[in-house]
Design a protein around this nucleic acid. Structure first.
Lengths: 204, 204
DNA sequence: GCTCAAGTAAACAAATCTGTTTACCCATTT
DNA sequence: AAATGGGTAAACAGATTTGTTTACTTGAGC
């Protein structure tokens, strides 16, 4: 009786269904600890289909890491493009967003860091996916820093990455958000790269 | 013929043998990915004995995390107690040491962070062991910062922890040491906590 | 010399893991 | 109406997992 034209709740292609189910499970339970049987059940897909799209579990892990990056990219786009913030304010917005995010009970640490912990030295495709993620993050900061008049912009971008990374890891292990004024710290960091002989870009 | 009184290479009690073998394997291959059979073989101990000392694998993981902390504590003692550095210099020494350490191919990220990635929400004893490690690290910085005349010393200590953590994670994922001047960054961080009305402690 | 604690080696249990294979279903297209 | 592509469900294979148990060894102290 339920074969009247169902309005498919979401016509996400199977491949995406699988990746999203796996993303959730890997994030919450880790990679090794999550079996493919559970993934396929959560995705509502047969095991046969899973292995058509992903010949090995590790291939699926790589795809999940790509989704992780893409999700964060979209989230940042939503956070930054619509507003009329200058680049310093955008950087501050990223950290403020991360602070809230990391304070959530649902925070499970950076997926790329976790993946590296489980697969470093064991699967080079996964290692590469992790590096791509961090390289991309660094690139985001580089782009933002580029238009702020500072000395050694690339080094500043790297320092910002260090800080973001530290926040995520510490919050995950300690189980609580940063008890410090991150905005102040980021501002100090940026200011420490502004020597006296730089023309002031209007308080940027 | 080889049953003449062997000079036992090291008479480390069995328990310690097991923990040390497990430490090495967990560090290099991850926790889930390391089976107890391999641990027992590397430790040169029967499985029976292993399960006498550690009723479950997770009990062994907790013990390994304690050894990890203890090892780092001893390493820091060797680094700091013998020398006549002031506290700022000691902090710089910690970061310099870490920078070298993280640049090594043998660096596998912080074991507590890796453990948290695999066992968060699944084993509270392991979670606790991870938190103890980070809390101890924070305590080290708190002690060192205490004698430097700064504003908000506890916040400064936390910032130092963030930075150390970030260095470790980024180096692990990127597979290369920090390309920035860490000493400069640490000095800037400390200086940013020294307001004008603090009496100068002699350049500490 | 006997006893006892501590350990070894290996078989075993029961579950779980990734990955394969078989048989079937069903909607679309030609 | 037949063929085909994409999917399901479930059995299966074979390796591996944690943990238990059994039978034996060995060394030290009384």
């Amino acid at each position: 009786m339920n074969n009247e034209l169902e309005v498919l709740p979401e016509n996400i292609p199977k491949r995406m269904q699988i990746i999203q189910a796996a993303y959730k499970l890997f994030t919450e339970n880790g990679f090794y600890a999550t079996g493919v049987d559970l993934i396929m059940r959560q995705a509502g897909v047969s095991k046969r289909t899973m292995y058509v799209y992903f010949p090995t579990k590790n291939d699926l892990i790589v795809a999940v890491l790509e989704l992780y990056r893409s999700n964060y990219e979209q989230s940042l786009n939503g956070l930054l493009t619509s507003s009329d913030l200058n680049n310093r304010e955008k950087i501050l917005a990223i950290f403020d967003d991360a602070r809230n995010w990391f304070g959530d009970d649902q925070h499970h640490g950076c997926l790329a860091v976790n993946a590296m912990g489980e697969f470093a030295g064991k699967d080079s495709a996964i290692e590469t996916a992790c590096r791509i993620f961090k390289t991309w993050e660094l690139g985001v900061f580089r782009e933002l820093v580029k238009d702020i008049p500072v000395d050694a912009p690339d080094e500043l971008a790297f320092k910002l990455l260090l800080l973001l990374e530290g926040m995520g890891a510490v919050a995950h292990v300690m189980g609580q958000p940063c008890p410090i004024d991150i905005a102040q710290m980021v501002n100090d960091l940026i200011d420490s790269h502004r020597s006296a002989n730089l023309t002031d870009g209007g308080g940027i």
